[in-house]
């Protein structure tokens, strides 16, 4: 098992590579969390983050739907208090609540037989059960990235759905190409997981991500 980047570091790395990433603030105190909530606009989500922090959801380290700076502030205090010694140095991520009816997952990993691969699939909390994913070997080209979207059994989800515009396939393809370049150019990257890649007004937005590096 390699080491993982903290969530905000993972997202920063993706942002650098041109992946649209949720705008967020990384702070260290409840005061600062309240200020961040004020400037980002509520509602917000506050999460504990750090290189040693895993299983955030299971441990209750993600607080959703905080409607005011005061709520953000008290959630931040509780999260800091919940940190354990083995979490190592921790910080707080404050991000706007992103809402989208459609969630995708996207990622890259190194297959033992075929080497670096890029993946896209239907996201959401049941993503693993739904198991609707398409894979290509990296590096992939734009045509491959579009083919991957066509491969999904639930490809219809990418069309106009319940008043939402169709997903901008070119932008999702651009995310996949960025993942491809990242894993090909950085052999120290073992895997990248963007989950969820939320579709907002038809455009993909990475809301959470985890990058694993070789030890």
């Amino acid at each position: 098992m390699g080491r993982t980047l903290a969530e905000h570091e993972s997202l920063a790395l993706l942002r650098e590579r041109g992946v649209p990433v949720v705008e967020e603030a990384v702070v260290d105190t409840p005061d600062a969390a309240a200020a961040a909530a004020r400037s980002l606009g509520t509602p917000v989500v506050v999460k504990l983050t750090g290189p040693g922090v895993a299983h955030k959801t299971e441990r209750g380290l993600v607080r959703l739907g905080l409607r005011s700076p005061a709520e953000a502030e008290s959630a931040a205090a509780e999260l800091l208090a919940a940190a354990r010694p083995d979490d190592g140095p921790v910080r707080l991520v404050v991000a706007p609540m992103v809402r989208g009816a459609r969630e995708l997952i996207a990622g890259a990993h190194t297959d033992p037989q075929f080497g670096p691969c890029v993946m896209v699939g239907i996201g959401g909390i049941l993503a693993e059960v739904v198991a609707d994913v398409a894979v290509r070997l990296a590096p992939l080209d734009e045509r491959d990235a579009h083919d991957m979207l066509d491969d999904l059994r639930a490809a219809a989800i990418l069309g106009p759905v319940r008043g939402d515009p169709p997903v901008d396939r070119d932008r999702v393809a651009a995310v996949l190409l960025a993942l491809s370049a990242l894993i090909v150019e950085h052999p120290e990257v073992v895997s990248i997981d963007i989950n969820p890649l939320v579709v907002v007004d038809g455009a993909p937005l990475a809301v959470d991500a985890l990058v694993e590096l070789r030890p």
Binding site: F114, M119, A134, L140, D151
Partner: peptide, 15 residues
């Protein structure tokens, strides 16, 4: 034969 991830194999074929 070594086991392979069939999703990767399938993507490889399509590509």
């Amino acid at each position: 034969a070594l086991a392979s991830d069939d999703r990767v194999f399938d993507g490889m074929c399509r590509q």
